[in-house]
């Protein structure tokens, strides 16, 4: 059995009175890619800072390669894991010097230029065009790629990426994914990636964790139905959607409650069959499909009018239905499938 690269037991981080992170138990295997999702302030970035040894846990045990971190040489540990910040900062110098900074800090002299150029190529930046550029002459996406290149250059065993795709163009999103995968291929890096971009994260990560209020849980893609809900017949309540359809649910806690519907609880059909036990059948147009790397499930993102909805189904089912972007389909779900926020 391999020793996990990270093991967290009862790790808690507090900011004042607020418990920002509360991880009962988490193990991360070497060479794996773990995706973290969840709303803002749910503890994802805090976990990355703990894993980067920038933030000491308030309590609990963090072990790196089987050795508890408490009291260890933080600088030595920081050379093992690097973090790409959500809003990366570039040093006030050229692209080359930015990428070379970590290498110089490690005393690398020989082959420095080659390493810098290779890292720039990994993120799809032509060294001939970009190496000499000052940090001011880069677009947002290019700056983020330079910041990633400077982390790739030092080939740390652990690469932590905080929202790497936020606010970057489509081309950069693809390049960032391939760079992340290359890091694992080339030197067996372990990656922990935070992203709101679920389809992208699903493609990159082997497994996903969803954070809520500082705690990790199973990753579930949820659809939100914000209400208002009005009572109709037979003790059922309805919410009118922008597309003219109505959604039926069992009694919500209040008429203003937000209904949460797991993507798993949606069945996809090409025709609206008669005599269905499910109360809800929404006509949708498939917009986007993506494969979840870890589970092998397919996420189907579709629109009912302007309302985006996501269903999660086994790959085989998606194949049988012959779903492609543009397919007109039905999303079916029970009135009792909602949970409430």
């Amino acid at each position: 059995m391999t020793t996990p690269i990270y093991r967290l037991d009862n790790v808690k981080v507090r900011y004042g009175d607020r418990l920002a992170l509360d991880v009962e138990h988490l193990e991360i295997d070497p060479g794996s890619i773990l995706g973290l999702e969840g709303p803002n302030g749910s503890g994802k970035s805090t976990l990355l800072r703990v894993l980067a040894f920038l933030e000491a846990p308030f309590s609990g045990v963090l072990a790196f390669r089987g050795t508890p971190v408490g009291g260890a040489d933080l600088h030595e540990l920081r050379t093992q894991a690097t973090l790409l910040l959500q809003d990366p900062y570039l040093l006030r110098t050229s692209v080359f010097e930015n990428v070379a900074c970590g290498l110089r800090a490690r005393g690398t002299r020989e082959g420095l230029k080659g390493m810098v150029f290779h890292s720039l190529e990994m993120v799809g930046l032509d060294p001939g065009r970009f190496a000499r550029r000052p940090w001011t002459a880069l677009s947002g996406g290019e700056a983020r790629r330079v910041a990633l290149a400077s982390r790739l250059a030092i080939r740390t065993p652990v690469l932590l990426l905080d929202e790497p795709t936020a606010g970057v163009d489509k081309e950069s999103v693809v390049l960032l994914k391939s760079a992340a995968l290359k890091a694992r291929e080339e030197w067996g890096a372990t990656l922990v990636v935070v992203s709101h971009d679920m389809p992208w994260l699903g493609q990159v990560a082997d497994s996903l964790l969803a954070f809520q209020d500082g705690r990790p849980g199973e990753s579930i893609v949820q659809n939100r139905f914000p209400g208002p809900w009005a009572e109709s017949s037979e003790g059922l309540w309805t919410m009118m959607l922008g597309c003219g359809e109505a959604v039926v649910s069992t009694r919500p806690p209040s008429s203003r409650s937000v209904g949460l519907l797991d993507a798993e609880d949606i069945t996809v059909a090409l025709e609206k069959a008669r005599g269905l036990s499910t109360r809800n059948a929404l006509p949708v147009t498939v917009q986007e499909m993506s494969l979840e790397n870890g589970s092998g499930a397919v996420l189907v993102k579709a629109f009912c009018g302007t309302l985006p909805l996501t269903a999660r189904l086994p790959r085989a089912s998606a194949g049988e239905l012959g779903l492609v972007p543009g397919t007109q389909a039905w999303f079916l779900f029970k009135a009792s499938a909602f949970r409430w926020e």
Binding site: R78, T79, T82, Y89, L91, R151, I154
Partner: peptide, 12 residues
């Protein structure tokens, strides 16, 4: 972010 960046790049 300047300090964080230098730390994450392994500056002693």
């Amino acid at each position: 972010r300047m300090v964080l960046t230098l730390q994450t790049l392994g500056t002693p």
